[in-house]
């Protein structure tokens, strides 16, 4: 793929970002991050309170990307086979089996949207883990491939009843976990309450252009972005130091008030996590029309690509969201570049 093609795809990426921004207000940051994730070919987990627009945001992206789209709601009685097939009695009175949401679109499946993922059982998480990591599935004595698949999932951290904690192995499969927070801006909040266009979410997302580009080209584009965006030795050293700081924050004199930093971290970012961070940083540089990654590209994606991979001491796990935020901020503050 030539530089010219990459430049054209960059325009498309910015158009995608612009289209979603047209219908979802006040979420410019998360929208840029999701766009980054799409072009870095990584799965996205949205985290936030109830009714903040997580589902609408993901649906808007699904509409604009195109390709096969499937959606499932996480419930406590959802079983892995519910994703693969469902059985019914046909008009002929005989039992029939039809493809479930995962298999319905075949290889063209572009977006699988898992709503309220933390309501599903660990068995379901386990199946999803394989689909996300390997993009394959074994069923009916054959193997199915989903080369263009990106999983979008959301969860709310408020409700704990009838929910299952997503295991760290499953969290690690997500390229980003993006917090969705409604900005405390009076004008925006008033608009969300009184502007009638926000009352019907399905109608709202129709405002975003449909199928902006060929979804089956995204893998190739992503590969080319990764090849064409450079990283220097100074940047490699910087990212390595960031990685080390996630494992041993005390070595970098990182302090968080009220937290014993020596005991905080059980496991820092994984190699896969740091590699995903760098993939996202490259895409961020590409979207900002640069040919090299700079520290600010890493800063733009650091929290979202790293925070959910950190395994904290159980003592601090209940305050995970706030501690992770503070920790990633402190790491960026303390680790210098070059």
């Amino acid at each position: 793929m030539s530089d010219q093609n990459l430049a054209e795809w960059r325009k498309l990426a910015l158009t995608l970002e612009g289209e979603v921004n047209k219908v979802i207000v006040g979420q410019e940051g998360p929208i840029k991050l999701i766009t980054t994730s799409i072009f870095a070919r990584g799965h996205v987990l949205l985290e936030g309170d109830v009714g903040v627009g997580k589902t609408t945001l993901l649906k808007a992206f699904a509409r604009s990307i195109g390709g096969g789209y499937a959606r499932i709601e996480g419930t406590i009685d959802l079983m892995p086979n519910d994703l693969i097939y469902h059985t019914y009695l046909g008009e002929d009175g005989k039992p029939h089996v039809s493809n479930g949401p995962i298999l319905k679109s075949g290889e063209d499946l572009s977006i699988f949207f898992f709503n309220e993922i933390n309501r599903a059982r660990p068995q379901v998480h386990s199946l999803l883990l394989r689909i996300m990591a390997e993009k394959t599935l074994s069923a009916f004595n054959s193997e199915f491939k989903f080369p263009h698949l990106i999983v979008f999932a959301d969860r709310n951290q408020v409700e704990k009843e009838e929910t299952f904690e997503i295991p760290s192995a499953a969290r690690d499969r997500f390229m980003m976990e993006i917090p969705i927070v409604i900005p405390q801006i009076d004008k925006l909040m008033t608009s969300l309450v009184f502007d009638t266009k926000f009352h019907d979410a399905d109608k709202l997302i129709e405002g975003a252009k449909e199928k902006l580009f060929k979804f089956d080209k995204l893998n190739e584009v992503s590969e080319n972005i990764q090849k064409n965006i450079n990283t220097t030795d100074a940047l490699k050293t910087y990212s390595l130091n960031l990685w080390k700081a996630t494992k041993n924050p005390d070595l970098y004199n990182i302090k968080i008030s009220g937290i014993d930093v020596n005991r905080l971290i059980i496991s820092g970012a994984s190699p896969r996590g740091i590699s995903m961070m760098m993939k996202c940083a490259r895409v961020n540089a590409w979207m900002d029309n640069r040919t090299s990654v700079i520290p600010e590209d890493i800063h733009a994606v650091f929290h979202e690509t790293i925070a959910h991979r950190l395994v904290f001491n159980p003592v601090y796990e209940l305050r995970r969201t706030e501690i992770a935020k503070e920790l990633t901020q402190e790491i960026i503050k303390k680790v210098s570049a070059p």
Binding site: N230, A234, R290, T291, S292, I294, P295, A337, P338
Partner: peptide, 9 residues
């Protein structure tokens, strides 16, 4: 200048 030297070579 730093960006040019360190990160863009």
């Amino acid at each position: 200048l730093s960006k040019a030297i360190n990160f863009e070579k």
